[in-house]
Write a protein that binds this DNA or RNA. Structure first.
Lengths: 206, 206, 206, 206
DNA sequence: TATTAAACGAGACGGTACGTCGCGTCTTCTT
DNA sequence: AAGAAGACGCGACGTACCGTCTCGTTTAATA
């Protein structure tokens, strides 16, 4: 969700203003979420007039998406070590950190909030939610290419299971465990990757 | 999250007012989510003074939780057919419908929003999030009792995978597919249950 | 303005409650006037339920008048030393103190406020405003009886001049002079009594 | 009490909004006084947002003073006919009308209410109360210049007597006499001016 | 170099929600 | 029936943010 088109004539927009606005938006949102996220506050924190803000993004959602996609997009880049479990563990660890980070968590918030109405979903989903999914999908595709995966296993449910399990894991995590999860990410991620690996493996002999 | 304690002396609270407030809260929230969810609006819709509302619940979260837990708690009751796949499919279908319902979706929204701060998480998680998890956990426990499950499979990651996969499935669903999901729930749920069944099954012969 | 009639049957009213209410009313009003004078606050300060208050007086005005007339009525009792100037000075001094006292000042406030509407004026004026006037009127009557006053001087304007001059004197007094006025009342009163004495005296020889 | 200072930068305030607010304030106050005088109501009647009102005046008092001083200030301009009695009668008549007018009466109300606390008194007194006093003081000064007044008569008590007598006269006036006072102002004013004239005249031969 | 059109900060504007408090009425239990 | 307690619908309080709108000033591309 880039900023709105500007007129070709006249003084050009100051790119520094855009940057400061996006940074301010993420900081404000990370504080306490929707509750205290105000356009006014973003402009104030950025040291910018309200007009400069509204000129670029008309709604809170547009502004947040602009800020959040820069954070989420890197998740689509995954490693390719030649070993499925290793790649999955690496990706899962990064997703776990993503959901444990305030700014990363914002991704989910916006996604959840925008799922309610048809208007907002599409632009955001294509950019953020899909970014996460596509990275893991690639891992499976590579593994299948290597023959590490029986071809009869559908990939999409596996991806949804892995991403979803990490999400629910964080979602149902008591607050004082979050620090532990940040430091011992591997221990938290391993059982979840295990589930996927079992499901992806060839089934027992009949 | 029940309403705040009332004093033993004086005129007792009108339970009808509480009911109207909760109903109004769910209706308002289902409209467009946080955006247009105002205490003022809830009281107005319920035909009730603001004081009667604030007397019972101080914050929007408290109010929403009160309304939402009546919707979420039934999810903890699961079937016990004697067949693991059948029970999982049944539970998963209900969870899918839960997340496709505006009021049910509110459950997730609140959960996501409250995860940011330590204050809100605990009461809500224990009541709603855990309700969903505990139902599925029971299914696995029963299956293990029946010997349908190899004892070396940890249950918790399986639960998180199932719940999470349904969640991500809905989360990444284009808006115009939602109606289809409501009507053909089985088709949407089956691949996800499959993943869990594979992961829960005894592993291939070495 | 006595309290409202009570039913002849049933439990009689507690007179102590009435007293505490009136005392509380005066204290509350003396604090910052109309601004912070609330029925709720009076009942709270008196340690009494709201119903006990509303049972006795329906409006703030009724309650205040009940409280204020006990303070104002003594002003109608004046000295009779046999000397006009002396009596006037004595009465004027007491009126000055009355207007310098927070509770006494409340008398004026209520009077001024109630003058706007026809409903409240009569009961209050007869009791309070007239109390002040009648005392001074009596002084002039006695002086006339003694022959100290030429009979052609109308009394009413003299009374109004004396009371009014004290009132305006206080009204236009800088705040930090009020303490001085309390201690050196005679110095403040003398010039005003002088004016009245000159006006009441026989006129210059032609 | 002018409106609060505005910043030199940014969009300037709309003077029309200020005018509408002051007019609305006077109308609201004239209705039933303090009782029903609400900031909310003033803004509503003026067709203005509450913010525009609070931006200019923070309290009811400030707002009322702004509205009232435009009404009271003209009282400081008095006639100078060369005849003391005539000038006094003229001034007294105008003051009488001032106190009989709802808006003019507000002057007194505010004055009385603000006398209780030190904060409010000064700005109001200097502008309104003194305006009335200074006009009459000027009349006496001119008369003294003409030799119409014996120099040993102090002016201030005379002024206080005149203004005060009119005030008390109105204050103790039954409601149904007010109309008569408006129409036959001369008859009401004459006895009061008489008192002042007698007091101001040279005293009887010893 | 002078013109010009938009960007920019600041903040006014009519609204509306916030959470609190007082209004006057009512309902409950206790004295 | 009095009394203490407090719930009830209502609306004002003063603050903050909404999105739009003027202001005066700055800035780069065009004429």
């Amino acid at each position: 969700m880039p900023e709105k088109q500007q007129s070709p004539t006249g003084r050009p927009r100051d790119p520094d203003v855009s940057e400061r606005l996006i940074a301010a938006a993420l900081e404000e949102y990370a504080r306490t979420g929707w509750q205290s996220f105000t356009m006014q506050g973003v402009a104030r924190r950025a040291g910018v007039g309200k007009s400069a803000l509204y000129r670029r993004w008309t709604t809170k959602e547009e502004l947040l998406i602009a800020g959040v996609e820069s954070v989420a997009l890197p998740l689509s880049e995954t490693s390719d070590s030649g070993n499925l479990r290793e790649d999955l563990t690496d990706a899962a660890t990064r997703i776990l950190h993503h959901f444990l980070d305030p700014t990363g968590w914002a991704t989910l918030r916006i996604s959840v909030d925008s799922t309610a109405s048809p208007t907002m979903l599409d632009p955001f989903q294509e950019r953020v939610t899909q970014a996460i999914r596509s990275g893991i999908t690639a891992i499976f595709t590579h593994a299948a290419d290597r023959g590490e995966l029986t071809s009869d296993v559908p990939v999409r449910p596996l991806v949804e299971s892995l991403v979803g399990s990490i999400l629910v894991h964080v979602l149902s995590m008591p607050f004082d465990v979050r620090d532990d999860a940040r430091q011992n990410a591997a221990a938290h991620v391993e059982p979840l990757v295990d589930v996927i690996m079992r499901a992806a493996s060839p089934q027992p002999c009949p």
